[in-house]
């Protein structure tokens, strides 16, 4: 019975981990960003399954309630509010070089983390076959609300600041819509007659580059 349970747990972990990795890949690489947001929501549900395997039921419920129910809904709603968010043609045209850079960086992150984990043998400090089963909802509630409620007050202040900041930014957007700024950083409005001075900096650099290339040739 015990071995069957261990085998079943291993199979369940591999199943959920495979689903999570495939869904994370789809959330990163799917062309349509609405589908990507949906795949991210399903990935968060899979991570909640991992939390249940790790004996943390409240964290699993919080994951489903906030990530799947709140953050994914917020991302989808924002995508629907932004008209050209789904337009990923520029992304497809520009991506191969950045994709190589991203692959190199992520592989270096993984390798450096694995090297640190091998150099500092944290596994040996943990006794094997140690299964603490004292995690319960009652204990967590006692710990969180009873003795460490200042964390929750910090969370309340964070949400307060987030909400007030959101509505302030929306109000700023309305002000900008009513009186649109015609200049940035006190630069004058470019005239139609001289298009070279419309964008500062970049055309000058391009012109110098072109001249240098001509000199090389």
């Amino acid at each position: 019975m015990q071995e069957a349970e261990i085998l079943f747990e291993n199979i369940e972990f591999l199943l959920i981990a495979g689903v999570v990795i495939v869904l994370a890949y789809l959330a990163l690489e799917h062309r349509d960003i609405v589908y990507a947001a949906f795949f991210f929501g399903f990935m968060a549900t899979g991570v909640a399954g991992i939390f249940i395997l790790l004996e943390a039921p409240f964290v699993a419920g919080l994951q489903i309630a906030i990530y799947t129910g709140g953050i994914t809904a917020l991302i989808i709603f924002g995508v629907l509010l932004i008209p050209r968010a789904q337009d990923s043609t520029l992304e497809v045209l520009h991506s191969p070089r950045m994709r190589k850079v991203g692959l190199v960086l992520s592989i270096s992150v993984v390798v450096i983390s694995a090297l640190i984990a091998l150099l500092f043998p944290w596994q040996e400090s943990i006794p094997p076959e140690h299964i603490p089963l004292s995690q319960s909802l009652e204990g967590l509630a006692e710990w969180l609300w009873g003795t460490h409620a200042v964390y929750l007050e910090i969370i309340a202040m964070l949400l307060f600041v987030g909400l007030v900041g959101s509505v302030a930014i929306i109000r700023m957007e309305k002000e900008e819509q009513l009186r649109p700024r015609t200049e940035d950083f006190s630069l004058p409005i470019p005239e139609e007659s001289e298009p070279e001075s419309a964008t500062s900096g970049m055309p000058v650099l391009e012109a110098r580059d072109v001249k240098e290339e001509k000199e090389v040739e």
Binding site: F58, G61, L62, A65, I66, G69, G70, I71, A73, L74, F77, G78, L81, L137, L140, A141, L144, W145, L152, I155, A156, L159, G162, L163, S166, V167, I170, E173, K174
Partner: peptide, 22 residues
């Protein structure tokens, strides 16, 4: 754009409800 405030309100009340459920 200002309709996104309602979703932010939902998210905040969602977090509050989760902790008060605990």
């Amino acid at each position: 754009y200002s309709y996104i405030i309602y979703t932010v309100l939902f998210l905040v009340v969602d977090v509050m409800g989760a902790f008060m459920w605990l």
